[in-house]
Design a protein around this nucleic acid. Structure first.
Lengths: 210, 210
DNA sequence: CTGGCGAGAGTGAACGCTCATTCACTCCAT
DNA sequence: ATGGAGTGAATGAGCGTTCACTCTCGCCAG
């Protein structure tokens, strides 16, 4: 637990291609077996290599999850950058949220549920997850600021809760297990999208100087 | 996996007091270590007894979770019965949902996240969780029917999605890990309550014969 | 009153197994 | 020949599960 290898925690380390490839290969194993359930030998086999060699790339399960989260975060940041570049950020954000909610149905959700559950008891994971959420928060608030015309601190004062709840809604869809068929998935998606619209409308209707 | 001991799966078996007491003692261990993370010897120690004796009460971890879920379900059914007895079921339901959302902050959430993650890969658990959700669904729809005056099948046709999303919102609050302080918990709670109100208002505004 | 008996609660060492982690080793391109 | 990539047997800790055992009652025959 002393983690002497943990120094290269620079948020900008570029995740070399080999690591990324391995991450892609072991994903399914994590989804199927869970964080505690997946053994290092199973993960190594899934990655197509021996245990010993596997340790050269990821010294622990936590390290893998960290890498996964960092990779996902990178994608999300890309999306936010696009939104800010768009001519109408409100429309772009709404559209981005909608498609994120619609996509989230796949087993991304299972993986995320697993990571969240694991984070609840491994503090080092919790730190990474918190870092990610905090970062998403920041981007969301920046976008809100652009939309409303408020300054950063005024935006934070008014809309931090909106941002938090928006994140929760996206997570909620992701975490939803496939219910036996009680309600059709696409209708649920549409309704959640409508609820996010309620939040965005509140933000948009508070434009500065109106 | 043959589960010959599983016959007493009658949904109405009364969960004898000793089992209930043990459940109360091991709860925290499950919360701290997770489903796979908590070992039988740890759980037995938490229950204040030896491993051997522990097996006399719960032949597997899944059995414990089943018992926990059944106990929770019993409480929820009690609440729904109250709502239906109330003079104005809409008000009672709204109030019940609100307080459920407000209470859900404690580590109930962690436990539920754990159970959900575990259910994603242990089919026998998934069955129990599905059973519970399905049951909650049913009660919610019954209440909706009472509120609107529609028949059961018409209510289901119109409002199954509303029920599903309401359940999701409650879960979302429960699953929320304590974020470092990005947004104050009570404001988030209030906003989620407002979103459930959006759903309930839609249901209520569709009263039959208006 | 008493002695013995059986049932239920409780014990913890022991079994076979899987796990995370290490390490002496081999390849092979440079 | 050097060093990075890769191997897989070995180690020891910890796991779920079992089982032979003890302890403590209440009960009834004598």
């Amino acid at each position: 637990m002393t983690d002497p290898f943990d120094q290269p925690d620079q948020p900008d380390d570029p995740l070399r291609p080999r690591e990324a490839e391995i991450l892609g290969r072991i994903r399914d194993t994590f989804v199927e077996k869970g964080f505690d359930g997946a053994s290092m030998q199973q993960l190594a086999r899934a990655a197509g290599m021996s245990v010993g060699n596997f340790y050269r790339y990821f010294p622990s399960k936590a390290a893998m999850v960290k890498a996964m989260i960092r990779r996902d975060l990178r994608e999300v940041e890309e999306k936010f950058a696009e939104v800010l570049r768009a001519p109408d950020p409100l429309v772009a954000l709404r559209c981005g949220l909608h498609s994120r909610i619609a996509e989230e149905g796949c087993d991304d959700g299972t993986l995320w549920a697993e990571i969240n559950a694991a984070a609840a008891r491994k503090p080092e994971l919790a730190a990474v997850v918190d870092g990610m959420e905090c970062c998403v928060f920041g981007h969301l608030l920046t976008t809100f600021a652009r939309i409303t015309g408020f300054g950063p601190e005024e935006t934070a004062r008014r809309f931090t809760t909106h941002a938090a709840v928006a994140v929760m809604l996206v997570n909620a869809v992701a975490l939803q297990r496939k219910t036996g068929g009680a309600a059709p998935q696409d209708e649920i998606v549409r309704m959640i999208q409508r609820l996010t619209d309620v939040l965005l409308d509140e933000v948009a209707s508070a434009r500065a100087g109106e």
